[in-house]
Structure formats: C-alpha cells, structure tokens
Design a protein around this nucleic acid. Structure first.
Length: 579
RNA sequence: UACCCGGUGGUGUAAUUGGUAACACACCAGGUUUUGGUCCUGGCAUUCCUGGUUCAAGUCCAGGCCGGGUAGCCA
C-alpha cells in the first residue's frame, strides 16, 4: 500500500484535518493541484545510533500526523549508512519507543541499507554521465580545497578523470582493493558554489567495517547526502519532512535526483523536502552529543534517567504518550527557531494525569501525630474517593488509628499570616477522616527538633464534615503509622538551572549549568497500605504533592516512586513572593 | 565580509490569504472547593523599523535592523 504507483487519491481526512501550519498548507496545495497524484507518503528516518528523545517525537508527530491527516502512510526507515556508529540494539529501542508513543508503521519498515545496491547503480549512472568522479586526495586535502564560507574552493586534480577510469576505480573501491580513506566518489558540481554543500560533495567513502545488517558485504558506504534523497525516492515518499538543518542540503538532493534523471527514459520519483524548526525546550538540552555527555560523564544514571528528555527517560518519569503528543500538538510547526516553555509540557502531563491518576495519600517527610482522645486499639476503615475527576473509579478504604503521620511541612509552631495548616491550638481536617486540633508539641530535648504532635479529634466529624457547620482552613493528607508502608521517593527538578543551558560564562560548557538539586532522594516515606500493590510504571497522584510513578527499582520491602511533576502550588508561590 | 532561512504579547502558535489581532501556556487579581489541586471569572500586543501601494496592510512592494543555520570521508 502507498507504494509509488498506488496513486489513488486518499480518502477521508484528505482535507488535512483542522490543524493549520505551513507544511499542511503546502500538502493541501499539492493535493489540490494533483502534484503527487493525490498521494501523501511520509517517513520517519532515524539513525540507529542512539535513543529517541522528545525532539524526535516532534518529527514523529509531524511525519505520522500529516500522513494521517491526508489519508496517507508513514514509513519507519532506519538511516543506516554509517556502520561504525550504528547498532541493532538501537533499532529495537527505537521501534519500541515509536510504538509506545502510539505510532504504527504497519508493514512499512525499511533500512537505508536495503537500497545499497540500487544506490550503487545510480552512482554508476552518474559516473557514466560524467557527473561524478573518483578523487584520490586525502581527507585533509579535500577539506583544504573546499574553500571557506566566503572563499571558493579549488578543483581536485582528479576532477577531469575519464568516465571509464572513474568507473574502473569505483568498481575496484567496491571490490576492496583500496584502504580506508584513500579514495572517494565525488559529485562533479561546482567548487565555487556559494552553497558549500554543492562543492563536489563526497558520495561514497571506503570503510572496511562490519555493518549491522549487511555484514561484510560492503566496504564502501554512501554518504547521508547521497543516500537520503534516494531512499525517499525509492520508497515513493512524497513529502520528505525534516528539520531546518537540512535546508541548505535540499538543492543538493534535488541536484542528485535531476542528475540521475538526466537522459533517463524512466525518471525516478522526486520527493519534495520541507523543513521545519527543531524542538527546543527551556531548562533542557536536546542534542545527541550533549545527552551523550550527560550519560558518559555520569551526570545522570543513564539514557533512561527520569531527568532525561529521552522517551525512555520520560516514560520512567511517568509521562504518558498522550501528554507528550498533546504537547507536540500544542507547540505547532513553524520555521522560526524559538524555545518552548517546559511549563507547557508540565501542564500537559498534569492535565492528563488529573483525569486518569488514582489519588492516594503519601507522607514524604513524616511527623508523628498522636490523637490523645482516640482509643488505643481502635482502627477504622474510612472511605476515600479514588478520583474526584472520575467518580466511576469508586472509593477505597484507608485505615485510621491513634498514631498517624502527617507531612512535616503541614505544621508550623509559629505560623506566618497566610499559613492555613496545622499549628498549636489550631483545628484542621484530615482528609476523609476527622477534624483534629493540635494540643501539644513534643521536642527532642537536645536538638529542639519537633518529634511529635499531640492532638485531639472530634468524633462528630467522621468523614470530614462538621455537623455544626464549622469550617477549617486546611485539609491535610495523612497515613496511619502502624499500617503505612515504607518507600523511597525521588523528587526531580529541572536538569539545568538556566532556561538556556548553553548560556554560560566564557570557557565553560552547558554542564556548568547543571542543577545540583535536580534529584532529591527522600527516604523513609510512609504510604497508605494499598500502594504495596503498585507495579512499576503505575501512576498516582499523591494528594497535595504531585504525580508519582512506581519505579522498577522497587523491591518487596521498599517501593520506589519517581515524581513526575508537582501539583501546582500556590502556597509555594506565596512563600516565594514573601521572600 | 558568502549563501540559506526567519522576525506577531513573557513563551509557542493563529488570523476566512488585503477587511481591523485569536488560542494555549506563563504571570497577576478574584470566585468555588474535604487536595493552597481541579474548575470558573477577569486582566495582560498599536504584529522589528522606515517608506510605498490601497478605501483598507500582520498579510503586498522597497530599503534597513536584528536573530538562527552552513566550511565531516557524521546524520
């Protein structure tokens, strides 16, 4: 399906959906004029040399999204033209991430290396037409004679080699007669071209390396610029969507196809490349090189560290595919290279999880509370709502007893004006339980640290409502001390302290802006007992704190949770404003 | 001082393709609330500049200013 010749105008959604951006507009115009026979075919072309990150997800959402909007198809194609960097391990990881995000390439999985033979034949055609030549210069010589951005380059002494000799040399290159780096095949374009990419670019280099798919079959490998457009052409891709980096390369891709088609009875398919700006997010780096540095230098624990913007990192952090796709939809597509506020991503995950994550009570920094007038051995099972945004998820029972834990932050001995929570003599509500009043503070004699609160409860307020209608200013979460389970919780914050991590003093790199507090490990947390059943990947809202995701590091004795994102916190804002 | 591409609020996008600036996030101010969450209401831009065409310009034209990218046998 959607092969070059199945040119049936695409049905349903062929209007291009309700979304409007400059690419969809162009495709719509192509549909109107019949440019590609009413066909839309895209592709997502990662190189299998690393893990996908949210920037790739933007490309994914454009490639698959536009195909879907116009009733077309999107291929998954691995661009594997550099055997020394690529590996099967990445192929599998990438496929997994693409599927996780919710995109389906069906049976259209391709590898650039599947087309090596065809590309070789095209190269032979160019040589025969005198449009490509073998250059014996060294890499250094080629670089030196390329010229600069403002000065033209110089012709290679090999440039006017006869086609027959070029062909012979090219065949011998393939046959393995020459060592790595000794020769290359170059396109014969123009060494004085103002676009440096057009100064006789290298098409093939000699690389005696084992390829993850073709093994030892080849010892010459096509350069990306030569291969990429041909892969698109062979697959019948109508719209080659890519980021702005390749804008200056488009004339070259067009030149290659035109050169192949020159004098050819059956011209090969000529895709239309359209470039969009890549994703930038505040407090984040999104380049493979920088992400690799973070991993290799141990600034994070790995590619799936929950602070990483990789898809595996975001997944472990607790992000949902829905939230990521929603974010990508909201930021749109354009050519302007701006920077997106990470707050929007956080908004998207909150919005998703608010509707879907079960609420539970978890005390991160426990403060012991004894309800003095509550019977010593009594335990009550109280009803708690699982999700007030989705009552169909029902209720659960949580145990209440004489000794509880509350959050240390929820008590202040000497509270400022706007602090609504517990304080000496003050009454608050324990969620789904009772009103309690603080009657005493127990301190460590040596350190002065508060170790326990003494409180009384009002039995008439069971469930959290006062029959006399009296109000409290705060409702707090809690757990029963004897029933709670233990957990470690990882609190994550932005990986960098600057919106633009590259904004550094002279001589320093982006790692100078690493946030030393991007991970805070909190041990000895107390969770409501039901959480013992949580499985890695399960997401919850810890009431009043944020959204958390059970981590694979959890053991039978101790659950481990990662904080996906905090709840919006106006109290934190108030405190910050008063500082 | 070469070539390519951009410029609409704090941020990212929109504007029936020439008809009087919209949406979201952020921020600020209120309301509701058994989560200081959610939800609701209100506030927040003379579209980089200067000229021109036009009844009418964010949209078209000219010049300028500013920003990004480009010199791998990487992709």
């Amino acid at each position: 399906m959607a092969k070059p010749d199945s040119d049936k105008p695409t049905a349903g959604g062929a209007e291009g959906g309700e979304r409007s951006d400059f690419i969809r507009e162009a495709v719509r115009e192509h549909m109107r004029t019949g440019r590609f026979g009413g066909r839309v075919q895209t592709r997502f072309p990662p190189e299998p040399n690393g893990y996908l990150h949210i920037g790739h997800a933007k490309a994914l959402s454009i490639d698959f999204g536009i195909a879907e909007d116009f009733g077309g198809k999107c291929n998954l194609r691995f661009d594997d033209t550099n055997p020394v960097k690529e590996d099967d391990e990445y192929v599998e990881a990438i496929k997994h991430d693409v599927r996780w995000l919710g995109y389906d390439w069906e049976d259209r999985l391709y590898f650039g290396s599947d087309f090596f033979e065809q590309m070789y034949d095209y190269a032979v055609e160019l040589i025969e037409k005198g449009l490509a030549y073998i250059d014996d210069q060294s890499p250094d010589q080629i670089r030196e004679t390329r010229g600069t951005l403002t000065a033209p380059g110089k012709n290679s002494p090999c440039r006017d080699r006869a086609p027959a000799e070029n062909l012979d040399l090219f065949k011998r290159m393939r046959a393995g007669e020459f060592p790595d780096g000794s020769r290359v095949l170059r396109a014969k374009i123009d060494m004085a071209h103002p676009n440096v990419n057009m100064r006789d670019p290298v098409m093939y280099r000699i690389l005696h390396a084992e390829h993850h798919r073709t093994g030892e079959k080849w010892c010459i490998y096509p350069m990306y610029d030569w291969a990429h457009g041909l892969e698109d052409s062979i697959e019948g891709v109508t719209h080659s969507l890519c980021d702005l980096d390749y804008e200056n390369h488009r004339p070259l891709y067009d030149w290659f196809i035109d050169a192949i088609n020159k004098g050819r009875p059956e011209p090969i398919h000529h895709p239309q490349q359209i470039e969009f700006s890549r994703l930038n997010i505040t407090y984040t780096v999104l380049s493979k090189r920088k992400l690799l540095t973070l991993v290799e230098d141990g600034h994070v624990t790995g590619w799936d560290d929950p602070r990483m913007p990789t898809l595996c990192g975001l997944r472990r952090r607790g992000y949902t595919p829905e939230a990521i796709r929603d974010f990508l939809k909201r930021i749109g597509v354009a050519k302007y290279s701006g920077i997106n506020d990470i707050a929007l991503l956080e908004h998207c995950i909150r919005e998703d999880l608010n509707k879907t994550a079960p609420r539970v009570m978890a005390v991160l920094r426990p403060l012991r509370v004894v309800i003095e007038n509550y019977p010593e051995d009594q335990v009550e099972e109280l009803d708690a709502i699982n999700n007030p945004e989705d009552l169909s998820t029902g209720t659960r029972k949580v145990p209440f007893s004489r000794v509880l834990y509350i959050e240390r932050d929820d008590f202040m001995e000497d509270p400022p004006r706007k602090f609504f929570r517990l304080a000496p003599g003050r009454e608050v509500r324990l969620r789904y339980a009772y009103y309690i009043t603080c009657t005493g503070v127990v301190k460590d004699e040596k350190t002065g640290e508060i170790v326990e609160l003494r409180c009384t409860y009002d039995p008439a307020t069971r469930g959290g409502d006062a029959p006399d209608g009296r109000k409290v200013k705060a409702t707090m979460h809690w757990v029963s001390a004897s029933h709670a389970i233990d957990a470690d919780v990882r609190l994550y914050d932005h990986l960098f302290t600057k919106e633009d991590p590259d904004d550094t003093p002279e001589g320093q790199d982006f790692t100078a802006n690493l946030n030393p507090h991007s991970l805070e490990l909190v041990t000895g947390c107390k969770l409501e007992p039901g959480l013992a059943q949580a499985k890695p990947g399960d997401r919850f809202q810890f009431e009043r704190l944020g959204y958390f995701c059970a981590d694979s590091d959890s053991t039978d004795e101790r659950q481990v949770f990662n904080r996906t994102v905090t709840l919006k916190d106006t109290w934190a804002k108030v405190r910050k404003a008063e500082k």
